[in-house]
Structure formats: structure tokens, C-alpha cells
Design a protein around this nucleic acid. Structure first.
Lengths: 254, 254
DNA sequence: ATAATAGTGTCTCTCAGACACTATACC
DNA sequence: GGTATAGTGTCTGAGAGACACTATTAT
């Protein structure tokens, strides 16, 4: 391509852009919803907030919000997590995009969903988070039986099954499925534990996510041979039995 | 909840929806782009169309288009595939959503991308598809070396590296990565072969996707033991050596 | 000592890769 | 017969589960 031909081309493209009418077609709204998971006391938990407004007012929903016109999708997810859950700096991964035309009764909303993981010591605690009252932040159990692709049921601490707002039940199910899948090949457990942890704690996290017991020697071998963790030389404190050695995740940090 | 309380609630929600202003905030456009992959002659190929309009006029791009306001995302992907590639009834899976604010110079476009697979005998052939001239449908090689996460490079049949429009290079890379990952646990090869195929053909598809040679007895064992395929009792025709038995995918169809 | 959990040594079973072999088509 | 590819039998080595054992802390 010659120089003045390239110039003409650039000018042609610039003119096209100047006359482009973005309002020509009716467009959906774009939102993000975040599935923040944690393993607390050997239970898989998901952060939900009670909806203060219509639609689905009073039901529990994933923290979410609309994406600003010049905002990156993952930035929107981080913003939502910070403003609605008061937690930042977490590992975050895009999960799936839900776009059924009727999934939101207000208007067409395409929701790009993200999965976030938090160690139990960083997971939201209404008692220590002044941004929230205990009433609008609820931690729910999202455990599921060891078997096959049983859809996830979300239960309150009291053990009663809850119906979530919109299609958020489906979103949570997909997040749990993704988390299970990642366990086999990605260093996922470390996002769910403090910087230093025992092999028993790591195994409990894996067992909770998979919903089944694991073999101890085999699990230790796999983890140690993988090179993903290294011993710190330090040991548990304040336990009434032999203390376990503390390990840390090798390579960077959360 | 009592009956008239529920009625009041429903009315309150209905009023909210009636006064909801969907135009209040500026919204992105939502598009779909489809990565249609096939294995032809032991090469991984991706369908690209030459852009007839600005922006990026003249470059090659994935088939894509905007999502209508009441259209399902996967329906949009199917429509795009049918209208821009003249092929339908394919297996389709949502891949990832790309939403960088500057990825399209026209306006903010959030693109929900899909991956589709086609057997070589259904893969687009400009010569047999009257919708297209050979000039605006191009098949490109998307092979990549066996090693690690080398970004995919797209080359023309002539072997020259091509720069794709927008961020479509990233989208293709992600599709190839996903395809590789699925190979281990999902019956993916069958989408890329005719209804009846030999084990050698299936192995070649796997080898092409993984970019490495596989062990023959081991591959046969794995496939046969998996229960995913069954022998048809029929054999290859017109080969100048011992003909291989034809197998079919067990359970439903493509 | 007892209780409780941490951590290890060893056996076996399964499965994938390697290799060599047999089988069956066309020439 | 030769050649080419289909298809199989068997060995080996890596890795996971099972199980029993030793180790170390608190009481």
C-alpha cells in the first residue's frame, strides 16, 4: 500500500466513524453479576445480598450492577464486589454470559458473570464490615452431594431452601461446576486459604468442593510433587495435639 | 404472606416496571462473534470473512453481528453462522465475552463469542455455497506448535501471517485453547468427523488439535473403553491397503 | 500412659506408553 | 511374494488408593 493511499484509507475510515450512529438500533443493557465463593467450616458458601428494590424485592441475589459505558467488564465486577460486599483484591475470573431475553422483567439485560474466591478470613463478615447491616448480607450454603450434575440448591444457615432472584440459581450452579472443574488442574485451593495453611486444611477445602473424601497420603504426594506449595518451617499454634507444619503457595501471591 | 399482601406486592412491582426508564443510562452494543473451527487435512482451520465495510475494511474477521433486542444470544450466533457462512445445525458453545472499551472504534461493543465445530465435509466451501464468492470467505490455518501457551497465529493457505480485525486474534486463540482443553473430557472429535469414521481419522483429529503424536494402542483403548463409540461392522472403501472398520459416535447425533 | 492428629512406607491396582507382533487388504 | 495399514498382546513404569505404621504434641 502506498503512502497517500494509506492516508486516503485512514480518512475514509475516520469519516465513516464520524457519521456512525450508535443509536440506530435498540440495545440491551449490560450488567455484571459476581459469584463470590468461600469455604467456611467445610461448607461451600456464596455471598448474596437481599434486594432492596423491585424487581424481586426481598429475594436474595448475587451482587451485581450495570456496566458503565467506558468501564472494563472486570473493573465493573471489582467495583460491584467492593461497593456491595466491601471486599477487594480478590482473584476473579469471567464465568459465563447470561442473556435470555426475559431474564430481567425491566428490560433486556445481558449479564456477564464473574467468579471470585475468598479465603475464609477475608470472606465478608457482617459483624466486622461497617458498610453493611447483618440484614442485607447473608451467607448461604451452596454444598451439593458428591454425585453427578445435580443442580445446586442454595440453603440458608437455618437449612431452608431459598429461591434466588432472576436466574441467579443457574449462575451459582455454573460457578460451582466451574470451581470443581478447575480443582484438577489449577491452583485453586490457595485462593480459599490464608497465606499459610496446613495440608489438612488444603485437603478439607478440596474435599468440600468435590463433595467427597480424599486419600491422605495420595493427596499429600500430589500437592508436594506438584511444586505448587512449599513448607515454611513454621507450625500450627494452640492445638491440643501434634501441630501440623504450615505451607505456603509457591509463586506470587493472591 | 397473606393473599392481599401478595396482591399489593405484585401491583407495586408492576408499577415499578411501568415507570422504569431503560434509556436512563448510555448502554454498550451487544454483538456475537463465532469461531467456526474444523480439521481439514490434518490442519486446524477457522472460518474468516473479509470485511466489506469500515472499520477494518479489507481485513479478515470472524463472522459476527449485533444481537437483536429480543433475540437469544445463541440464536444470534446461529443466525450469524447461517447468514454469513451458510451453515446451520452445528454444535455451538459459548466461549467468552470480550468487552474492552476500545475494542471497536465505532462505539462500545461487548461481544459474546461462541465456538462452533464442523466436520470437514460440512465446513464451508465457497465453491458449493452460492451465498458467497470465493473472495469473501477464506479458510485459514490456525495450527500451533505442540508447546505451551503460544498465542495462536493465523496464516493464509499461502503461509503468510495475517492480522485479523478488532481483537479477533485473541478470540481465536481462546477458542483453540478451549478446544484443546475439552479434548480430555468431552466427546469433541465427533463434531469434527462425518457420522462414520475410522479410529485412525479420529486419532488424526486429536493429534491435530493437540499438536503432538499419540500412541496408537493407548488411543484405541481409551476411545473403545470410554463407551463413546461403537463399531458399525462396515469398512472403508477404495483404499489400497487393509480397510479400517468404521465407527460411530454412541448416543444421539451431532 | 492415653488421646489425637501429623506424617510416612509399602503394596497393589489401574492405566498409559512402548514395542513387537499378527491380520488383511491391494499390487 | 511385497507393501501398507489395521489391529492386538504384553511388558513396564508412573501414579493413586488402601492400610498400617511411626512421630509428636497435649493432657
Amino acid at each position: 500500500m502506498e503512502k497517500d493511499e494509506r492516508q486516503r484509507w485512514a480518512q475514509e475510515e475516520a469519516e465513516f466513524l464520524a457519521t456512525y450512529d450508535a443509536e440506530e438500533f435498540e440495545r440491551p443493557s449490560v450488567a455484571v453479576d459476581v459469584v463470590l465463593l468461600s469455604v467456611v467450616d467445610s461448607r461451600l458458601q456464596v455471598l448474596l445480598v437481599e434486594r432492596a428494590e423491585h424487581p424481586h424485592k426481598g429475594r436474595f441475589a448475587l451482587p451485581g450492577g450495570f456496566v458503565a459505558i467506558d468501564e472494563r467488564l472486570d473493573d465493573a465486577a471489582r467495583r460491584v464486589l467492593a461497593s456491595k460486599a466491601g471486599i477487594d483484591g480478590l482473584w476473579l475470573e469471567q464465568l459465563y454470559t447470561f442473556g435470555a431475553p426475559d431474564r430481567d422483567p425491566r428490560t433486556r439485560v445481558v449479564s456477564v458473570t464473574y467468579m471470585a474466591l475468598a479465603a475464609f478470613d477475608r470472606f465478608i463478615s457482617p459483624a466486622t464490615e461497617p458498610h453493611f447491616t447483618a440484614a442485607n448480607v447473608v451467607l448461604l450454603d451452596a454444598s451439593r452431594p458428591a454425585g453427578e450434575d445435580v443442580p445446586i440448591e442454595v440453603e440458608s444457615d437455618a437449612g431452608e431452601k431459598l429461591e434466588l432472584a432472576f436466574d441467579h440459581q443457574d449462575i451459582v450452579s455454573r460457578a460451582v461446576g466451574r470451581l470443581r472443574g478447575k480443582l484438577d488442574y489449577a491452583p485453586v485451593g490457595f485462593q480459599l486459604l490464608p497465606d499459610e495453611f496446613t495440608l489438612r486444611e488444603l485437603q478439607e477445602v478440596h474435599e468440600t468442593i468435590r463433595g467427597e473424601q480424599l486419600n491422605k497420603p495420595s493427596f499429600r504426594r500430589r500437592m508436594l510433587d506438584s511444586g505448587q506449595i512449599e513448607p515454611t518451617g513454621k507450625y500450627e499454634q494452640d492445638v491440643d495435639h501434634r501441630p501440623a507444619e504450615l505451607y505456603r503457595f509457591v509463586g506470587g501471591h493472591r
